[in-house]
Amino acid sequence: MKRIEEKHPLAIRWFHWINFPVLAVMIWSGLLIYWANDIYHLNLGVASIHLFPNWFYHPGYHESTNKGHALWDLDYRLAEGMAWHFLFFWFFAVNGILYVSFLILSGQWREIVPSKDSIKQAVQVILHELHLRKSSPVQGKYNGAQRIAYFSIIVMGAGSLITGLAIYKPTQMAWLTSLLGGYEVARFLHFWITMGYVVFFVIHILQVVRAGWNNFRGMVTGYVLTDEEAPQQ
């Protein structure tokens, strides 16, 4: 017997889908800014990768035309990047604050904040997904791995705002900047939190694809179709 179950409240869906383009603009404009002083490396022990190689900013660049692909053109645009960044951080901040407020006030935080079983459950989930374990653990709205991932992303969002303010206003908010270990440390953290979003995004998309249409549709419509028996009235 099929029935329709509510999965994601309207507010959560709005926060989620507003955040997507806003964060995209923040990461894109952040790259325009980072280009002007791209000092970080990814150290993999044997190799150190410069973030980012020149081709990354301007793929398909030809000296003859002095142009690359128009859709992916990230160099020499620092001023423009700062202007977009300092407009859209307001939307990112307000959306994030409203989202967390909603989680708290609606009690939805109980679905996301990791519980004491979450780590154990997360290990079981990962083993199951790697086909090393037959049964998947029992779960509520989110399993342990999801709880840890989604809660981390909220903490990272707060981290982006805090480290961002620390490098945006290191005099007005000098107390915050020094609390984080200084201007350079705050900038370092701000960058790597963003890299964390990119990693999250890749895994998130893979998992959404794996979970299938019904689950994805749940984040759009708010409802999922289930095969379960209807509960006894």
Partner: peptide, 14 residues
């Protein structure tokens, strides 16, 4: 929250 029961109805409504 249940919206409906019954296969056809649920699919159609969804």
């Amino acid at each position: 929250r249940l919206i409906s029961t019954g296969d056809d109805d649920a699919e159609k409504q969804m």
